[in-house]
Design a protein around this nucleic acid. Structure first.
Lengths: 197, 197
DNA sequence: TCGCCTATATGATGCTCATCATATTATATG
DNA sequence: CATATAATATGATGAGCATCATATAGGCGA
């Protein structure tokens, strides 16, 4: 997942990978230091050679999550015509695959609500991640020559995050409906064709 | 806040009021049994005379939160023309007042992300609350004779929840922009007039 | 006023957690 | 092969937690 030069850096990256997965799946407090280190194939003692304390870990884990998110974002938006990129991104972000795999990709649906209660460093990472996501959407929307691309981008991002948040608390059938509704409405208001399905 | 007949019922209601406030503010795990009972003017021992265990408390506290939310919902939507009611609801739900007072009203922005990780009883309460919210929106949208009111209602709810979730992780200036953007875009797509401001 | 029952308080138990001091293993260098 | 240094392991400490057994207090019928 993450490459690094020294063995220690590789170990640190492994810890962060596991933390990023576990926290998206179980919440920021959902995994303790000992359990996390075990998942990384280590014991709890070595933890403080890699991080100042648990808060420091959380902040860097949030970074790691937004790296995943950015990767997906760029995979769809970059090197695609704007309309196609946006359509693909909406379909992927609001897919049943994404619904199922709570430990991957964008941290906002699973941890967005907790972000405001996190220590400053982690919270700042969320803030930066949101701005970057919104800016990427705004650029694509501007390319489509839609009016107020900045405002529309904020609105689109809000709906994407909200729809997945809600869908994840619903059972599978209700989630399917909610996700489909937001995929359709989002494409409609961006002026994209709506595929049957 | 809540009335009841026997003293014990009044005590229980007080505990639930405090739990509902504290959990919206600090997260579902943000307050322990002892601290909660102290906020209600009691000590920790009596807790189990009112609730089976902590999970039971959480489930009923979520109920209590959706009662607050429903009250606000109906205050705006009922006994108002549909257009006016929706406009007021959007303005209130996405207001800076709501942004500040994390311990009041709808639990979805603060706890929506955690809901999927809660025990079944609490999670079911969230699911019911979402359906009721969506149905109320759909009824108002249908009165406006908009196409696909059910789908639109799901989409509008998603944007409302997502916008407040994101705004709460942003600083005040960025939050103001995000909330304003979603207020405008929501009204635009519902065909409501957009007030200057 | 006396005793009963309901509601709340005290105190204890066992668990999980973050953190740290110290020991041990692994790696690299001479 | 020996030694120094870096990386991880062991074990302990103290705090906070949910839960429960038991004790006390406070209102109500006699």
């Amino acid at each position: 997942m993450s490459e690094a030069s020294t063995p220690k850096e590789r170990t640190r990256a492994r810890i962060l990978d596991e933390a990023a997965k576990a926290m998206r799946e179980k919440g920021a407090d959902g995994i303790g230091v000992a359990a996390l280190m075990k998942r990384a194939g280590l014991t709890h003692g070595g933890f403080y050679a890699h991080f100042e304390n648990r808060d420091d870990l959380v902040a860097h884990a949030v970074d790691r999550m937004f790296q995943d998110s950015d990767f997906v974002l760029k995979r769809h938006l970059a090197g695609n015509e704007a309309a196609k990129g946006l359509s693909e991104l909406i379909d992927y972000y609001l897919s049943e695959e994404t619904w199922k795999h709570t430990d991957r990709g964008c941290p906002l649906p699973s941890l967005g609500g907790e972000a405001s209660r996190m220590p400053t460093a982690a919270r700042q990472r969320f803030s930066d991640g949101i701005h970057a996501f919104r800016a990427a959407l705004a650029a694509s929307l501007a390319a489509l020559e839609l009016p107020n691309p900045e405002s529309l981008a904020a609105s689109v991002l809000a709906e994407m995050v909200g729809a997945m948040t809600l869908a994840r608390t619903l059972d599978e059938d209700a989630a399917r409906l909610a996700l489909g509704a937001s995929r359709d409405q989002l494409k409609r208001r961006i002026g994209l064709p709506i595929d049957a399905g």
